[in-house]
């Protein structure tokens, strides 16, 4: 055990947190660079994306997207690394608290309230916030709810909205409550300023 440990210690490697060992790395050939999108990442419309919570391994990918805004759909704060990333790159992080009265003890399984859906959608219908990423913990249900309601505003038929939602819900499938919420959502509650609406939305609500 002891010797193993020492051997490890002798190895040159970069500790990301301390950045120790950085000087000793000699690059002999270009690395086979692979970029990693966040879990459940997918474009929704031009310059509008959805995903699960991005982690540091996804940051180089996110930089490619030139994001201006990230909408975070949860009561709890995202990981510090994400907060720092947004800070460092001037990305505005919008919290659409799912249940403002719930506090930190709130059950993350709870769905979104109508108020938080509308607040997220108000951001989405404004081109000034683009490029824009909508995300929650896994990018499944809360993100799916908001995107589902957006599709309703765009006039998608409900079967297609449901199909898209379920594509991202993983092996456990979709939640009926989420789909009921999407179906019952009153699309008129979202105020669309035509001057600031994205082009794909304008062609839907003209």
């Amino acid at each position: 055990m002891e010797t193993d440990y020492e051997e490890d210690d002798d190895n040159v490697y970069i500790n990301e947190e301390l950045e120790s060992g950085k000087e000793q790395v000699v690059v002999s050939h270009a690395p086979d660079q692979r970029i990693v999108p966040p879990l459940n990442f997918c474009p929704v419309e031009r310059y509008l994306y959805r995903s699960g919570q991005p982690s540091p391994v996804n940051f180089p990918f996110l930089l490619n997207l030139n994001l201006r805004t990230i909408i975070w759909l949860a009561n709890e704060e995202p990981q510090d690394t994400l907060l720092e990333f947004c800070d460092a790159h001037g990305i505005q992080l919008q919290f659409a608290t799912i249940n403002p009265d719930g506090g930190e003890d709130d059950n993350p399984w709870d769905g979104l309230t109508e108020h938080s859906i509308i607040s997220a959608l108000q951001t989405i219908v404004n081109i000034e916030n683009y490029p824009l990423l909508v995300c929650c913990g896994m990018g499944r249900h809360r993100t799916g709810t908001v995107i589902g309601c957006l599709r309703r505003i765009m006039g998608w038929n409900l079967a297609s909205v449901s199909e898209e939602y379920r594509r991202f819900t993983g092996s456990r499938g979709g939640r009926i409550l989420v789909e009921l919420l999407i179906e019952a959502f009153d699309t008129h509650l979202v105020k669309i300023d035509r001057e600031k609406a994205p082009r794909w939305l304008l062609s839907a609500v003209k």
Binding site: G155, E163, K206
Partner: peptide, 16 residues
Amino acid sequence: RSSVVEEVIPPENFSH
């Protein structure tokens, strides 16, 4: 809203 949104039907498995 002043106008009514026309319903559209995307093909199955449609995505960007």
